[in-house]
Amino acid sequence: MGTEVGLAETAQLFKVLGNESRLLLLRLLEREPHTVGALAEAAGLSQPLVSQHLRTLRQAGLVIVSRRGKEATYAVADRHVVHVISDALAHVLEPVAADSIGTTRHPEERTLA
């Protein structure tokens, strides 16, 4: 079976993005760079958990870190990921096209196959 180039890497990207906390952190970083402490406060997560998620995001090449003394500031590494997340959010928030009986379902009624 032939495989399209990049599909395995794309699947890995979606695995990393498949965590609500990591998506939230990326949304916060989309607006402006943050320290771990600022991200923990804004996201309502513990600092160790934020650090763990940031490590995963860094290993995936989705965030970069800059250090000034002991302070580390994180930022989105590539604006493409911001667009992927925004497009996915727009997709889940838009009403679904008319279903088989002609009524429109809303996103909260959507089920995954």
Rank of each mutant, 00 (worst) to 15 (best):
Q52Y: 13
E9L: 08
K70H: 09
S51G: 15
L29S: 02
P48K: 07
I101D: 13
G44V: 04
A40R: 02
V65D: 04
Q52W: 07
E41H: 07
A88T: 05
R67P: 00
V82F: 01
G18S: 12
N19C: 08
A43G: 02
V63I: 14
T73I: 08
G18L: 04
E9I: 00
R67Y: 04
P107V: 12
V65C: 12
M1C: 14
V76F: 06
V92H: 05
A88K: 00
K70P: 01
D99R: 05
I101L: 12
L39A: 13
V82S: 15
Y74Q: 04
S21I: 02
L17N: 07
I64L: 14
H91N: 05
T56P: 00
L24Y: 02
V96H: 10
A88I: 08
L24P: 00
A97G: 10
T103K: 13
I64D: 08
R67G: 02
E41R: 08
G69W: 05
Y74M: 04
R31I: 09
T111Y: 11
L24T: 10
L39Y: 02
I64V: 13
T35Q: 02
R27W: 02
R27Q: 14
T3H: 11
V92P: 00
D87R: 15
R110H: 13
D87H: 10
A43P: 09
T10P: 03
V50F: 02
E20R: 11
V92K: 06
H91S: 10
L24D: 07
A43S: 15
A43L: 06
E109R: 09
Q59P: 00
V82W: 01
E4Y: 01
L112G: 01
P33A: 13
P107Y: 12
L23W: 00
